[in-house]
């Protein structure tokens, strides 16, 4: 099966919720990585976070599911603060996809999906396998269930990682430069899967260097520079008539 031969993610209903961050601050020592970042993503909407390297994009994403605890600020899921919740619980509701996939190399694809289903969602072996196979089908990789991740292409691995996250039935999905580690010819398959999820009503925050994707698939774009959301709004606005000189400079550098 090639990267393109995949049924789109149809008839999959997500129990998405809205997501917002308020005035997120974070410093590592004297390095002030985030300096008050606000983000609003409506239920079922997609926000893309763009910006130069070192602008704090990936760090910001990690504060949303509290892989990194913000020093100050609030994170709201469906209007409710998540900071007083058990972080492990929170992360079950917020799926995350990484640049390096972070699949478990010592177990096959099916077991990669089944492990969290069994251990965290406490499904029986049968239920977990059924859910796992269903989600592999969703990303077009049902035939790879028995393969080790290392035997798959990067694009396939990333789709497995997306399936693994989706199988946990998240209310929000975070993507951290999901295509940056992929060979150019594999990028498209992953992006189209992400675009499908977006269309199907998954609430998504996508850190990306793919300006085409940001323009086409997102409802909101937020431009982060030196830990500050310099500009945000609908993609047409940011890409076609950016207000700030810094965004203009950035766009002329990357486009």
């Amino acid at each position: 099966m090639t990267e393109e031969q995949r049924e789109s993610v149809q008839e999959e209903t997500f129990s998405s919720v809205s997501l917002a961050t308020r005035d997120i601050h974070l410093a590592f020592g004297h390095n002030r990585v985030l300096r008050g970042v606000d983000l609003d993503v409506g239920k079922g909407k997609t926000a893309c976070v763009i910006g130069p390297s070192g602008s704090g994009k990936s760090t910001f994403l990690r504060t949303i599911n509290r892989l990194i605890e913000p020093d100050k600020g609030d994170i709201l899921l469906d209007g409710e603060s998540v900071l007083d919740r058990d972080p492990d619980r929170l992360r079950q509701q917020v799926g995350m996809v990484f640049q390096q996939f972070n699949l478990f190399p010592h177990m096959n694809v099916l077991r990669n999906l089944m492990l969290p289903l069994r251990r965290i969602r406490k499904l029986s072996a049968d239920e977990a396998e059924q859910a796992a196979r269903h989600h592999l089908e969703l990303v077009g990789l049902a035939d790879k269930a028995g393969s080790r991740p290392g035997h798959l292409s990067g694009g396939q691995q990333q789709r497995v990682a997306i399936a693994r996250a989706l199988a946990m039935r998240p209310q929000v999905m975070l993507f951290d430069e999901a295509t940056s580690a992929l060979d150019p010819e594999l990028v498209k398959g992953v992006l189209s899967l992400m675009a499908d999820l977006s269309k199907q009503g998954m609430t998504m925050v996508v850190v990306t260097h793919e300006m085409g994707f940001a323009r086409e698939a997102s409802d909101t774009v937020i431009f982060l520079d030196q830990g500050v959301a310099v500009e945000s709004g609908p993609p047409e606005k940011l890409f076609d008539s950016p207000d700030s000189p810094r965004l203009r400079q950035f766009l002329s550098d990357v486009l």
């Binding site: 492990d88 079950q92 972070n102 969290p116």
Partner: peptide
Amino acid sequence: GQLEGSRALGF
């Protein structure tokens, strides 16, 4: 990344 990936799943 293995630890981060596991934690992100809710482990």
